[in-house]
Amino acid sequence: MKNKFESKKPESRSRWKNFPIKSDKDLVEIRAYGRKLAREIGFNSNDQTLIATALSEVCRNIIEYAGTGKIIIETAQGSSRGISITAHDHGPGIKDIEKALEEGFSTGRGMGIGLPGCRRIMDQFQINSQAGKGTVVSMHKWVDKNGY
């Protein structure tokens, strides 16, 4: 109790890490890292699981459609703590983003729920894609969105 305020004080510096994505083996590592980071900046266990799952989905998207790419995970500290995930690839791009965000639509081996699901569980979600050039998916989640 004595150290309550000290221990709650968030670290002042932000952290980021760049994960190159080459195969489905990268999934396991990136999920574990995302969960650990989410826990360290104060997400509850339910949100940690959501973040790990969202990471899994965007990572899977890269492997499935582009083969390789990278995912950058960043944390924001201070008054609005949160996590930022950006997935880049140089794959074929998404022809119809609206369609890709429809639940149940899939051209791959998932359930067509990956991207629309991510949009639902994150606080912010954005896709930029250019046919033939690649896709960037960026999404954020804040710790205290539903807090006091």
Binding site: L50, T53, C118, I121
Partner: peptide
């Protein structure tokens, strides 16, 4: 299936 995992699954729509 863990409670958090179950919750994440339904929230994701799985």
């Amino acid at each position: 299936i863990q409670p958090e995992v179950a919750l994440a699954m339904v929230q994701l729509g799985l």
